[in-house]
Design a binder for these strands. Sequence first.
RNA 1: GCCGGGAUGGCGGAAUCGGUAGACGCAGCGGACUCAAAAUCCGCCGCCCUUAAAAGCGUGGGGGUUCGAGUCCCCCUCCCGGCACCA
Length: 904
Amino acid sequence: MPPGALGAAGYNRCLDDTALKMQEKYQPSQIEPQLQRRWEAQQAYAAREDDPRPKYYCLSMFPYPSGKLHMGHVRNYTIGDVLARYHRMKGCNVLQPMGWDAFGLPAENAALANNVPPAEWTYKNIDHMRTQLKALGLAIDWRREIATCKPEYYRWEQWLFTRLFKKGLIYKKTATVNWDPVDATVLANEQVIDGRGWRSGAPVEKRDIPMYFFRITRYADELLQELDNLPGWPEQVRTMQKNWIGKSYGVRFAFKVAAKGDTSPPSPLAGEGGGEGELLWVYTTRADTLMGVTFVAVAAEHPLAAYAARHNPELAAFIEECKQGGVAEAEIAALEKKGMDTGLKVVHPLTGEAIPVWVGNYVLMGYGEGAVMAVPAHDERDFHFAKTYGLPIKQVISEKGERGREKGFSADAWEEWYAGKTGYCVHSGKYDGLGYGAAVDAIAADLKALGFGDKQVQFRLRDWGISRQRYWGCPIPIIHCASCGDVPVPEDHLPVVLPENVTITGRGSPLAKMPEFYQCNCPQCGRPARRETDTMDTFVESSWYYARYACPDAASMLDERARHWLPVDQYVGGIEHAILHLLYARFFHKLMRDEGLVPGNEPFTHLLTQGMVVAPTFYREGANGKKQWINPAEVDVKTDERGRPLGATLLADGRPVTLGATEKMSKSKNNGVDPQTLIDTYGADTARLFMMFAAPPDQQLEWSDAGVEGAHRFLKRLWKAVYDHVSQGPVAAYAGGELSGPLRELRRQIHQTLAKVDDDLGRRKQFNTAIAAVMELMNAIAKCDETGATARGVAQEALEKIVLMLAPIVPHISEALWTELKPGAALPEEPWPMADAAALVQEEIELVLQVNGKLRGQFRVPSAADKAAIEAAALVSEAAQKALGGAAPKKVIVVPGRLVNIVA
RNA sequence: GCCGGGAUGGCGGAAUCGGUAGACGCAGCGGACUCAAAAUCCGCCGCCCUUAAAAGCGUGGGGGUUCGAGUCCCCCUCCCGGCACCA
């Protein structure tokens, strides 16, 4: 039932009047649970499709149920809730749902540590965290709660999978994973520590295994193009996605692997098996430097490397060495660049020159062709590689520098301009003098004429491998049949239910050890077959949950309610999801659109990426040099008389501890502050206010106990101000009539604050400055000592507006105070207050006088004064006279409404 | 390594379109109230010189554009996020 349907009288009838009767003291522990119970009983935040008001779908990234809420959650969900409540007051039909990203690795880790089945652990965590979330007073429609580990949810993911599989949007190929040879298990990147398995300690190896892939590259162009149609997204996120997709225009061509003494050009009919006479394909965006190629580098896994190593034990050993270590790109990119000559040569396609082929540990098989042409003179990485191994460096690009003189090239040291595209070809025969574009065109044309190369558009984005050799995930709905191949599970056999009673050993894949799970019959031929035992990447669940909230009980994947609510108007979540999650969700939206399930091309109209919550760290070093991290709650920090930290001691023993860096709150650094303690001590409103006040939402937020007390102090002051005001008897808010100067000024500030807060919450989404403006207004009220009925009327107006402006941020205290200020009225029905333009008018304004850009004084002018009048007023001002000393100014710059700058 | 951010008093931050740097809060200092403490209220609070006023300096470092730069441009340092199996 929408709050409006009850009416103010009906809403207030649910009030326990005695318990909410105004106390002199602010007691959040009394107010908050009572209001939360009332909201729940009234279904005050249930969202309905038949509501005629414009819809506003406000979504915060759903949490992984790790055990208990952390500060990052409190921040994320408060931001979302402020926006949801603000838009509700603005007259929108708001949907704000909540659910659980319930599949994932930590449940299996917990199972290993505590011997609890992942399902049980997860459900227990969900129950606890739901209670915690409710204590925050979020305006959530809890009827729509979903958990991705429930078959009712993931069955539709399996259903979509089978549809996409039949469409050819899912395919199988091998991919490289981290392999722990001792635990016989595939490891996640975070489980590889310094090249070793986190539990076994064994050196990790790269291993190729078959996997299912989503053809996200088929949508690469659209995913890129549509970024320009997302003005509600932060520029930095769009830039990151653009670079991630990485559309490039280049040339794909082949070298022929030379048989001894053979310098003839390759034949287009040659094979690509990796032997002599066959083709070695590469892709380059710098075809203009083709004449400067001095070697070719292939990945250790490239067939040509294996071919060259057949009778070369040293090379074989090097290739083995390259297979050591994990697959994480960050790790590989940070490795020392190593390589070895294969002894093989390829033929330069244009010059016929023999070019050596090297194996390089920095060339990755999964990227492009797994082979690159190397131009040391014009690529920094190739340059350093060539220097290390004494390979030739051949300049083929030059550039004009100062006064049109040619820049000097030296193979001794790398310079930035070597890699530039603004020069022209040199030492390149017929291509000499051509610029970047013309040279690429000419060389591409020549390669094409030879029949083994052409221009090609390429993306950095790779297809999305979704197979995981894990238990706690959505089973991939495929049956492997010896005669029919990979057969998708038919619709009427879905869902493929994940068994919940399992024992996790940390060795191998649990489902692959459960015949009762994998033994089945082929849906096509009926013969015994084997069910796929891999589960899906958990990013798959989080790629479409936003749509399921619209219709959590639908008897299909989505129904018409998804068309009503989508797209999400406002999405709120951590910046760490800027690329992967947000790109996958955009991709899924397009997949679902093409299935006719969702409207529009993009899932999220506006995006707010919030910063992390950080806190100081404290530690002691053990005898073995290992740091023992101490929680900030167990530490007493001593400061000097200016508040600078002098040192810290452990409360338990009074002995010193070391103050470490301020870092993201984490288990590993033991610097997390439990939000539960905060809520228990000060109430949810204080927690919310502090989170919104301490930093702008997109910046990192530093935890501060003192800051929390400051936020609590403000709420106590607000409470007392209303109490004192109400105690003097009821009064109507000022509605017109003569005002004294100070009261007119106070009223002007009330309405100036209304305009500011509306802009901050609506357009800027910057809550700290909105709160600061309200605090300033509170200070102004306290300073105003006008008395009488009119003054009380203005005070009533001020307090009413303050309570309404704060309602989205601190909903409990606001609702309690509203009942006192306007007996019989219900806050959830109040519209957002708008500034009265008439109250903002000023007769005179103060401008700044600068001399040579430096502040030298102030002067007053009528607010209607034009430029000439302002200049005249400035020149006769005391400060101007003093600065000029009778001389005429050289120049006068007038910025109306701001300042006058006199150039003397 | 590559891509994207960030750096402003003792601290968190403000300055929204190139126009008064430090709003608001915290900490600190001084005072009021109190038998006392806590709470609360009032005042001060960038650095430097100073009795004071005034001047000077000041937004990570170096250079530039401009009447005027925290904001724009170039170079550098450090910190943070992401890098495809943490979520």
